[in-house]
Amino acid sequence: MESYLADHVTRVGAGNGEPLLLIHGLGHCKEAWDPVIGLLGARFDVAAIDLPGFGGAPALEETPDDHSLSAFCEQVMDGLGWDRAHVAGNSLGGLIAIRMASRGRALSATALSPGGMIRGWEKPWARGMLRVAKHVPSRLLPLGVFSDTALGRKALLGLMFGKPGRMTPSYARSAMAAPARATVFEETLDAVDEIDHLPPPTVPVTIAWGSRDMLLFPWQGQRWKATLPDARLVTLRGLGHVPMPDDPGLVTDVITRTTELAQDAPST
């Protein structure tokens, strides 16, 4: 764990406030949070992590489903000296954040387009598009036009991002390269399915969905709301599946508001 913490955790704002764990989605890496980590670090002790098998991190020995990945994130918290933390995640990371809240390790959970509510034809669509995202962008990465121009980013990254023209070229290059670097992409994709048993979290949970999410569709948020009636459901107007570079300020505000709900809640 010591080498993992040194190589696969970005820590910002240590000593600035309550702990906040950031968890990326399938195929991405800790750099997914670069647009917001500085904003969040002004208020929280933030750690953005690489999930096992992503971002160059070693893979788990067990099946990489949301249960084992949640348990691993809790081990990371132990290594950081955190008993509980606010947790925010995107896509697969959002599902993990909710799992951690259900398991009692989260002070609050913010889930941005969380997985776990894909049904019917949505499943082959999402899996097919994720496989396209894994293989196509990395092959086009040497053609700088797709990362270095707003039009190129819009053409290639519009599936995942609502406003790809706004992202920086360096962020675009990271997003294009990350899926191909993942060593357990297919294994994780096959292992994570519709949620099964989920004890209701007793901490504030926010489900936030980009209105331009074309991978996991916004109506899946209503399924989460039906499963977790006490959760707050928020629409992110004009944002995509990975909303952090689309509007860093709005994403920061959504996460911060969720943490404030935890502070406002009566102690038990």
Rank of each mutant, 00 (worst) to 15 (best):
S267R: 12
A6D: 09
W82T: 07
M244T: 14
P19D: 08
W209Y: 15
W33N: 08
L80T: 07
K163M: 11
R153V: 06
I255P: 00
G104Q: 10
M167L: 12
I96G: 04
A133Q: 12
V136Q: 06
L107S: 13
T149C: 10
R181A: 12
R223T: 01
L215V: 12
P229R: 07
D230P: 02
K30G: 07
A182H: 06
G238L: 10
F185H: 06
V46S: 01
S102Y: 07
P266A: 13
D66G: 04
F161L: 15
R99V: 02
V87L: 05
R237K: 14
G162I: 08
E74V: 13
A177P: 02
L92F: 05
A150E: 15
P266F: 13
S267I: 11
L80K: 08
L198D: 01
A265S: 13
G128T: 11
A32D: 09
A262R: 11
P64K: 09
P35F: 05
H135Y: 08
V205W: 00
A106L: 03
G13H: 01
T183A: 09
V145A: 14
R131N: 07
D34R: 13
I255E: 01
S147E: 11
D196C: 11
G15Y: 02
L198Y: 08
R153D: 09
R127K: 14
D83P: 02
I118N: 06
L130M: 15
S113L: 03
G41F: 05
T202W: 02
A172M: 03
P137H: 00
R153S: 08
G152Q: 05
A59I: 04
S147T: 13
L215R: 03
D193F: 04
A231D: 02
L69V: 07
G94T: 05
T268K: 12
V136I: 15
G104R: 06
P179T: 00
P266T: 10
L92K: 00
G17I: 09
A6C: 08
A48I: 02
V136P: 03
M77F: 02
L233K: 02
S211W: 03
Q263D: 11
T268S: 15
